[in-house]
Amino acid sequence: MTGALIYACVGAALFVCGVAGLILLPHLLRKILAFNIMGSGVFLMLVGLGQHDNIPDPIPQAMVLTGIVVAVAATALALAFVRRLLYLTSKAQFVANSKSLDQTEEKLITRERNKEGDASK
């Protein structure tokens, strides 16, 4: 087994871990971390598989760079959304069903009204 192939295999393992985490973990922050692990796995695969005869190939490197940029942007967007969700519901998890969603919305509305009431006082 060449070194490049080892990278690729480790990448594949990381990828599987990431996918499993993304699907199974309930906490949103962990999901975002899992996504990053998944992404790193794919990048390793790209670099590893792209390396024929142990000569570094520039094209996968360029692709991975692009991929990293995309992943950073996606992570930032995800974090922004989770922060917003944390502000709205004080939980970083999916709400189970729409009934409880309606309840949290009502709570939120009353909270904001109370704030407004306090301000007007």
Binding site: A8, A12, F15, V42, M45, L46, L49, G50, M63, G67
Partner: peptide, 9 residues
């Protein structure tokens, strides 16, 4: 993208 990696490989 994992599929792309395999194809490129």
């Amino acid at each position: 993208l994992a599929g792309v990696a395999l194809i490129y490989g």
